[in-house]
Amino acid sequence: MDLLPTPEQVEIIDSSATFLADQISIARTRELFESGELPAVGAAAWSAAAELGWFALGLPEDRNGIGCGLADEVLLFREIGRRLAPGPFLSTVLAARVASFGGHQGLSDEIAGGRRVGLVIPGSLDAIGPDGSIVGEVQLVDADPDGLVLTVTPTIAALVAVSSLSDVTEVPCVDPTTRLHRAVGTGVGPVSSVASEVDPVELRGHVLAAALLTGIVEWSRDTGSEHAINRVQFDKPIGVNQAIKHPCADMAVQAQLAYSQSLFGALSVDEGRADAEFQALTAHATAAAAAEFATGATLQIMGGMGFTHEHDVHLYVKRMELLSHTFGMPGLWLDRLLELPEPV
């Protein structure tokens, strides 16, 4: 048992942080979405991420991937979350798996090479059929109208062509860096699909969403604490006051919990533990609760600046909402957590 990153894993953290700071900075993200480009990630940066192997990191080598574990992907996604990088990283990484395990290696290679795949958020649980097709009202996150979207349920994950859907309408998303469509499924069969026994795509999704949220919690902790140290009122840094200091401490605890449980969830999936589903859902539920708390706490610590468009905190609040409503929502995960057998 060891939850410390290896030197190779530290390298993943450092190099991804450097790349993100360089190529997908929040300043650049703002430029893009303010000029109406959604998702707010430049084509060049996206291709560069593909070239770095980000979309094939966790794919086995015999599937043309890099062969790293889900825990390695957690470390990458934590950095993506921390730096608020927009774009369908989560669904594209999962989609490359679905295509490969679904028997479409050529498509998988294309996706790993940078073909974006959006994510389906069903309006109701029965909007996704048992074969992964879309049969009801859905929302599409970061979908290209001529591209593919990913459906995920506890039993199956599938790729569906957006062109097969009806009433596809773009609508503003609460997260201004994200493109959102409404659409209605027509039951056209998926392009590729994989059952969860073959590859637990849903669980991987929960763990990676937890990792993104962990990055958000850590950004909030660091941003809130820094302001608490630097902002002076009544001749003292505001951080001397426990009404400020204590939520900062709570953010530190929440960040550590979200991080450790994301790793625990990832390793449970990697190692095929009997309680992998429990641990992965717990990771998402833990990180979502932590991020809700931490973004709110930091917004409050910022004072009036926290309420502005200019400060980044609102972007993190909104991303948190998106990620807390991905692959279901907290109430649903909790219902499942109660029904599952006791963790081992």
């Binding site: 048992m1 550590q256 919990l257 991080y259 450790s260 449980q261 625990f264 833990t286």
Partner: peptide, 14 residues
């Protein structure tokens, strides 16, 4: 509570 106990264990392990 079940989830929180699991997360506390992961924190202990970390």
């Amino acid at each position: 509570a079940r989830a929180d106990c699991a997360a506390l264990r992961s924190l202990t392990y970390l």
